[in-house]
Amino acid sequence: MLLAIETSTRSGSVAVGLEDGSVTFESLASGRNEDLAETVATLFPEGGEAITSYALGIGPGSFTGLRVGLCFLKGYATVFPRPVAAISSFRVVAEQVFEAEPSASSVLVVIDARNRELLAGRYLKDQGAVRVDEELPDGLYDLAALEAQLGDWRSGRDLLAGEGATLLGASLERADAGLWVPRADTLARLAAPELRAGKGRTIRGLEPAYLQRPTAERRGAVHSGKD
């Protein structure tokens, strides 16, 4: 049994994947990722002994949201230590778009990183399999530079997804906005083969994919003292 947690956006979700491939999905109320504990407690009223592995949407995304999912799972895994598959939240979105749009050849996922920067990652469909574009992996990109190069990456039917899509103008076709939020059931389906292949890892040293240094490190801003 696989417990999958995706809290990289305001619309978090939890899924439970069974050995037969079926997946149970529970969405958290919008902006209420901290309800994660209640949802998991409801899904496993007798405890999580039957869980054999975890999947976690590791980001990029909301720093707070990512830490909610990660820290909750670190506490949970203290009791039930199991291998975890940490999957890019952008990869989850891309998978959703490819599932809904079989004719798409690439999906560029973008979110606003402020200060005219974007967190972006491009995914390609290659002989039926989805893989990250090594030319544009998940990372922090300058908005103007990214926009200027969009034409170079044309590969067929290229789709744009993610809450930063509106910042990139109208040069790419936008995927249905309902697909922009990474879902835990998609995460569970992506993680299952990795975990079966023994690619799970221990969760203790895991960190979110922030892909950005703290603002203070960039600007030297400092909190005035302890609260």
């Binding site: 405890g47 909610v68 506490g75 009791v79």
Partner: peptide, 15 residues
Amino acid sequence: LAGVEAAKGLAVAAR
């Protein structure tokens, strides 16, 4: 939040 969420995870798992 880091401590609270970890505590919730542990408490829920261990009931």
